[in-house]
Design a protein around this nucleic acid. Structure first.
Length: 307
DNA sequence: AGCCAGGCAAGTG
DNA sequence: CACTTGCATGGC
């Protein structure tokens, strides 16, 4: 393994690795200590996390036969890594380390809730995940808790993901679209996916055959992109917003889940409308537009962990 | 025991 | 278009 480190204390706004990886944006990292993404425990502050990427991922396609293992931990102002390749550019991409957080929050209002959330999780960054794992994760997310979504992705990787052996340990990549398209619905149900099983299988098939891919969405204006995402099965407005925000770089996307809807009722009642599109548009404006998804991500994590 | 969790698809009016 | 219903599953 190669090793390296990134001086994240010097980045504008810093980095909170644990909050970034465990706030329900990404489900493709695991902790060495085996703990699930749920706890707000202080020990996670220096835990090792690992993931497996397709080998040509920095060139952007998921599903290569080659894979790279990347391990990271945050300690003493550094993001330390061990990996089978140079992980610097991958981490900058995945964790959006080039985002200037103070500049982003210049564009976001400083209401009491947002101020508290920012203060609680300084350095939390919106992730930029690979498209397919993000799509599958959020199809699975319907009516599920964060820890269980994470568990489902772990099960999918164990069952259908390519094995990668490094330094005597076995890692599992996230399954390719082809492998999930070939899975049976009943097998997926055995892994706990419930009624989401046929959605995952069918959407994987759409990607595998090329009928619908990220390329059909990326580049569209935000609201058109949200509509286009719904060509996938198991993707409505909310899941579409999550994939746009966490994989396709639409930082203005504001997913309206049950937590955010509660936040609207409690803190932004003037944003209540009678449709997803209208409420989303109002809250997007309330959160300053361009980076509204950043504000949403802080509020979601804050409400879910600090009540 | 009931309620809830980062909702969605299909059917009806 | 809006509204209703059915759908898995585990934790509190």
């Amino acid at each position: 393994m190669e090793t390296g480190s990134i001086p994240v204390a010097d980045l504008p706004g810093g980095l909170d690795l644990q909050a970034t990886l465990e706030s329900g944006q990404t489900f493709r990292w695991r902790r060495d200590d085996g703990r699930a993404y749920e706890s707000d425990d202080p020990t996670g502050g220096s835990a090792w996390y690992y993931t497996v990427a397709g080998g040509v991922e920095s060139g952007r396609e998921w599903g290569s036969d080659d894979h790279e293992v990347v391990r990271v931990r945050q300690r003493d102002g550094l993001l330390e890594w061990e990996a089978t390749t140079d992980a610097d550019p991958l981490l900058v991409e995945w964790l959006r380390l080039d985002d200037d957080l103070p500049a982003i929050f210049e564009a976001v209002p400083d209401d009491p809730l947002l101020a508290d959330a920012r203060e609680a999780y300084r350095g939390l960054r919106v992730v930029n995940d690979p498209f397919f794992p993000c799509l599958v994760s959020f199809i699975c997310s319907a009516q599920m808790r964060v820890a269980r979504i994470h568990g489902m992705q772990t099960a999918l990787a164990r069952e259908f993901g390519e094995q990668v052996a490094v330094d005597g340990r076995t890692y599992h990549a996230f399954p390719t679209p082809e492998r999930l398209a070939a899975a049976t619905e009943s097998k997926l149900r055995e892994l706990g996916l419930g009624y989401r099983a046929p959605y995952v299988r069918r959407s994987a098939e759409l990607v595998a055959t090329g009928e619908v891919t990220a390329a059909d969405v990326a580049g569209l204006d935000y609201e058109a992109a949200r509509e286009a995402m719904q060509a996938f099965v198991g993707v409505g407005d909310k899941v579409a917003d999550c994939v746009l925000l966490f994989a396709l770089g639409y930082l203005e996307a504001v997913p309206l889940d049950t937590w955010i809807r509660t936040a609207v009722a409690d803190h932004y009642p003037h944003c209540e409308r009678d449709s997803y599109a209208e409420t989303s548009r109002a809250l997007r404006a309330e959160f300053g537009g361009e980076f509204a998804g950043y504000a949403q991500t802080y509020v979601f994590h804050y409400l879910r962990t600090r009540g």
